[in-house]
């Protein structure tokens, strides 16, 4: 049996087993819960904002390796970014997972995320990878609505 795996690459397993920014921020400026009704995966994300930037983020995903790794990578990709930048980052990711985008188009700081491209061939699992990103979007939307 080969040591590498197209889908469960080492980088995915590493993020899954040692997720970055794992946990819950208390207190938090934003607290949002995402659920995948198909499989029951859940993801709780908390944010601290500072002057329109994501000063800190913690996530608490309960689910498969794909969803945990994706969540961990998401936190790396958006921490320190302004909400607009974070928004653009999420869109780039979704463009790769759900649209015609490829991993090559991702910016350098999203390098690890390339590994998730393998999920694209498994339609039933794409939702696992996208859940936390959608949850983050929802959290950011709440912030914008509060501003109005």
């Amino acid at each position: 049996m080969s040591l590498s795996d197209d889908l469960y690459r080492d980088i995915i397993l590493e993020h899954h087993k040692n997720p970055h920014h794992y946990g819950t921020l208390e207190p938090a400026d934003v607290s949002v819960e995402g659920v995948n009704p198909l499989c029951g995966d859940e993801c709780h994300i908390t944010l601290k904002l500072d002057d329109g930037r994501i000063a800190d983020i913690k996530a608490n995903p309960r689910g498969c390796a794909i969803s945990r790794a994706s969540t961990s990578m998401m936190t790396d990709a958006v921490i320190g970014k302004s909400l607009e930048e974070a928004h653009a980052t999420v869109q780039k990711f979704k463009h790769m997972m759900l649209g015609p985008g490829t991993a090559d188009e991702l910016p350098e700081e999203m390098e690890d995320i390339e590994a998730l491209e393998g999920v694209k061939v498994l339609p039933a699992r794409i939702k696992c990878a996208v859940l936390s990103w959608d949850t983050l979007l929802e959290g950011m939307r709440e912030v914008e609505q509060k501003k109005d």
């Binding site: 469960y8 689910g63 498969c64 390796a65 498994l122 699992r125």
Partner: peptide, 10 residues
């Protein structure tokens, strides 16, 4: 240590 979704995929 292996989530059922990952197991089913494997």
């Amino acid at each position: 240590d292996v989530h059922p979704h990952d197991l089913a995929t494997l």
